[in-house]
Design a protein around this nucleic acid. Structure first.
Lengths: 236, 236
DNA sequence: ACCTGAACACCGTTCAAGT
DNA sequence: ACCTGAACACCGTTCAAGT
């Protein structure tokens, strides 16, 4: 924390009195946002809250950030940096599953961001790199070009949706209550109204990690094997 | 609108002067919410706004509605009534696709609700009936019990996610801009940074309705054919 | 160009008090 | 039990004015 630079005396006295207020930058804003995210959740990552943390007014942030949605999108992309740079091991299938699980982990840790990712077309550099990596893995596995292009979207959409769905149950106690209510409703489903739900109530709630693995295999196999060319001939 | 009941005179004068303020009910609140939703979008479906429409204070709504999330969830379930009661034609595959497309149509029309549906475990009566119908169709197609139970979730999650993703691009002009930006970013992707995206930029944006059909076929086939029992043996 | 304070137009939710 | 007004604790965004 000690300032060892020789030009220290050129800093006006008023600035030397207390820890210098760092210049406002896009990165500084995102960093402050990440800190608040970790400490207090996305609900507190607001323009006003970040501005307070940076000892300025909310209006000042608008030089660097378009609006709140933009703020959250940039924060998500920052969180995706490690995912986009990881080098998983194994064959292409294992690698792609590892990447997807890693991506989901990030979203699981930040429920509300998964929801946001759902509706804001992601275009940050880290997300782009993630997509590029996944395309490479699919092509390495012999997936045709178009299947790979459409498939990468399907796989990521599914991962995001899964995270958005499950993570919220965990985070808020409200949602936990809801889940308990739902579980009870399914278990006690009126066999007259909902015969299939009543009969399969056990299976509907079963699964745990097996269930995620099943859906990943299902999707990867589908992307690899479901023909597109044939469909076009049918339509033309 | 004319009151023909004989006890009309028992209503105090002050109430007869102007259109009687209807008693507050859960259904009345949801109806008011639906009207505002159609006219002004989900962003305006707030406790305060509905209360104003019903000529009361926001606090009064809390007798019938737990909180804003609950309000939106109940509104979505109301919109799902026609989907849950439709009787589509064709074989089980065609029927299940019709149901899914119908479900997506509703969410497409109300973007923000799709996002909400993503994170709130749905347990309204109409959603339950929709799930029950889909289970029936899968079982009729010869899908094993557990595949059907897990599959109905996967299919609906995918439909919801698809709607949440695409509908927003349509609704807000902000998102339309973003999409144009993304399209440009993909088209101009640096071949050094993102070689696969650069090479497949055409395919990544291609598809239209074919793309949805492809993913529906992929998912339905996967649910039908991807074995679960085998996986368990591997693990045990 | 960047930064600021103040203002505008909203929110959800709680609570004491009324009926 | 139901309903209410008022209050509390916030929001995002814009804008005129400063540097």
């Amino acid at each position: 924390m000690k300032n060892t630079r020789t030009d220290q005396n050129t800093i006006p006295k008023s600035r030397r009195e207390r820890p210098a207020k760092p210049a406002l930058t896009r990165d500084g804003i995102i960093d402050a946002g990440l800190e608040i995210l970790r400490a207090e959740g996305l609900g507190k990552v607001t323009m006003r809250r970040i501005a307070t943390a940076l000892d300025t007014g909310a209006a000042s942030l608008y030089v660097y950030i378009r609006d709140t949605e933009d703020l959250h999108a940039q924060i998500l992309d920052a969180l995706l940096a490690p995912v986009s740079r990881a080098k998983p091991e194994g064959d292409w299938r294992q690698r792609i599953k590892t990447v997807l699980r890693h991506y989901m982990e990030v979203l699981f840790a930040h429920p509300a961001l998964a929801r946001m990712a759902m509706s804001t077309p992601a275009s940050g550099p880290n997300y782009m790199r993630l997509v590029d990596n996944m395309l490479g893995l699919l092509l390495a596995g012999g997936v045709p070009d178009r299947n790979a292009a459409w498939g990468v979207d399907l796989l990521l959409l599914n991962a995001t949706a899964n995270a958005a769905e499950h993570s919220t149950w965990k985070e808020s106690s409200r949602a936990a209550d809801d889940f308990a209510t739902l579980e009870a409703a399914v278990a006690a489903a009126d066999a007259k109204e909902y015969p299939h739900i009543a009969r399969l109530s056990g299976e509907l709630m079963s699964g745990g990690p097996d269930r995620l693995e099943w859906s990943l295999d299902l999707l990867i196999n589908g992307v690899l094997e479901t023909p597109i060319a044939f469909r076009e001939k049918e339509i033309l």
